[in-house]
Amino acid sequence: MIIVTLYRIVRFAWQGFWRNFWLSVATVSIIVLASLTVNTLLALNVVADSAVKSLQQKIDISIYFDPGADEATVLEVQDYLAKLSQVASVRYISPAVALQELRLRHSDDAMILQALEDLGENPLGATLIVTAHQPEDYPEIAKILDRSPYKGLVTEENFSTHRATIDEIIAIASRVNRTGLAISLFFVVIAILIAFNTIRVTIYTHREEIAIMKLVGASNAIITAPFVVEGVLYALIASVITAVVTLIGINGIQPQLQNFFTGTPLNLAQYFTENFFTIFGLQLVGITLLNVVASTIAIRRYLKV
């Protein structure tokens, strides 16, 4: 008996879907458009994030040591810094390597090469290049170094010159995130309102049927169920279309986007594939809930009599 009832509910829902075909198409389209907007903004966020990350990876601070500081002490400092939780890596550049790099950088500047030649001995000290996990960590690292006993060995660190850039990047990153979230929310709210209204119209077109069902003694649960199932049907179709269009679109624009990010890999498609179930699963659940709640609320006024 339960199977018969279920079958009838699903069939009523199915008929409802096809009899109001264009209305169903409109409902599904609106939901798909809203979901696509959300996904586009999500993609933008991913792009912005990886842009910020690639910039962040390029940030490091160099600590220049006194040419007199001996290698063992510098290596001790390297060890000390590497143990800090904020620090991702510390690279040691010996005075000899530093000189070689300097020569290489200015290989077509005869004057500098000549000056170095005239100097006779290596004027450069050792350098430690520190990379932090987060750009926010640099000030802290600089402070720790400043308070450490090694302070006297340091002739210069270029943290302060990087500071402005670092702050800028942090600010941009959080602005991108916040704007994306705000726009997403805006579209989600609009989508909810439109979907809600479309479902109300759908139920309105069935008002005679509902009235007759009430008249002959159908229970409210049985009257509501087909509309809820119809809502789930909308949600399923909309979610599948959204997933397909999103994945096709992302894979389509990935190569073009990659051109902007020469050097650093942009894993947009990978992001959506890896988080497939989280992103599209959540969307499916969200849309389904929206439709179920909307149907249940919209039908209430017809159930009163």
Partner: peptide, 21 residues
Amino acid sequence: FKLLPKKTVLENVAFALQVIG
């Protein structure tokens, strides 16, 4: 009469029974 215009005579009557299970 409150009949459903998209259903036949038979379906209109059967509908009343279907919806009460």
